[in-house]
């Protein structure tokens, strides 16, 4: 199949048809931070950390590289001022929102963000609603035992109607895929009485 040629950070790269900008960048070892991306599930463009800038002369726009399809001749930049500004604010807000997650703190530190100007709301919080647990349950396990409940600032991860779900087979995929370890604490609120006996979880 014909390959798609374009530029990332002024370097020529080749993508297979159907690849996204992020997939191509990773193929070439170009680093773009992500939180809600995982190879096992469809990209959802939720965390917005993977924003990159596409430039064409004076015109430019920011796109989420995890869902932006590779296209012939585009010029992608991963480290522009606008990109850094988005990343910096997302990291600062996450540091205040999910202070209990060392993974987030490490990732933020890699991009130079080590403190936040925002007050911490819940020092125990680890979940930043990337939605990986929900997507793996729906797309890979095929059960949809987990969903996000409510909207906006009130959004949270839970079983439908916030009741432990009989649909859950306690397979542990959600616990495994969770990038912050938040699912370990949430797991019992999802799992109802299962009819299957399973081996103990290793998270």
């Amino acid at each position: 199949m014909e390959k798609i040629t374009f530029q990332i950070n002024d370097r020529e790269v080749e993508a297979r048809p159907g690849w996204t900008v992020l997939e191509t960048a990773r193929e070439y070892g170009i680093e773009i931070p992500t939180l809600c991306f995982h190879e096992a599930v469809l990209p959802s463009g939720a965390c917005r950390l993977c924003m990159v800038e596409i430039k064409d002369g004076d015109w430019s726009k920011l796109v989420a590289s995890c869902i932006y399809p590779a296209a012939k001749g585009i010029n992608v930049y991963t480290e522009t001022e606008r990109v850094s500004n988005v990343r910096r604010w997302i990291f600062e807000m996450l540091l205040a929102q999910v202070p209990a997650s060392p993974e987030i703190a490490d990732l933020a530190a890699r991009y130079g963000v080590t403190r936040t100007r925002f007050p911490v709301k819940d020092p125990e919080e680890m979940c930043m609603l990337c939605g990986l647990c929900q997507r793996v349950c729906e797309e890979v396990v095929g059960l949809s035992a987990i969903s996000t409940v409510d909207r906006g600032v009130h959004k949270r991860v839970g079983a439908p109607f916030l009741r432990p779900s009989d649909v859950c087979v306690a397979c542990g995929c959600c616990v495994n895929i969770c990038p912050t370890g938040a699912m370990r604490a949430l797991f019992d609120s999802i799992r109802g009485e299962t009819k299957t006996t399973l081996t103990q979880l290793t998270a």
């Binding site: 959802s44 463009g45 939720a46 965390c47 917005r48 950390l49 988005v86 604010w89 997302i90 807000m93 996450l94 929102q97 925002f118 930043m128 609603l129 939605g131 996000t148 409510d150 909207r151 906006g152 600032v153 009130h154 959004k155």
Partner: peptide
């Protein structure tokens, strides 16, 4: 908008409240 945000993406879900604060 904070009340009406769907809450899916981080900039909107967290950013609007922080701006309002």
């Amino acid at each position: 908008l904070e009340e009406e945000s769907c809450g899916k993406c981080i900039p909107c879900r967290l950013g609007l409240s922080r701006m309002r604060e």
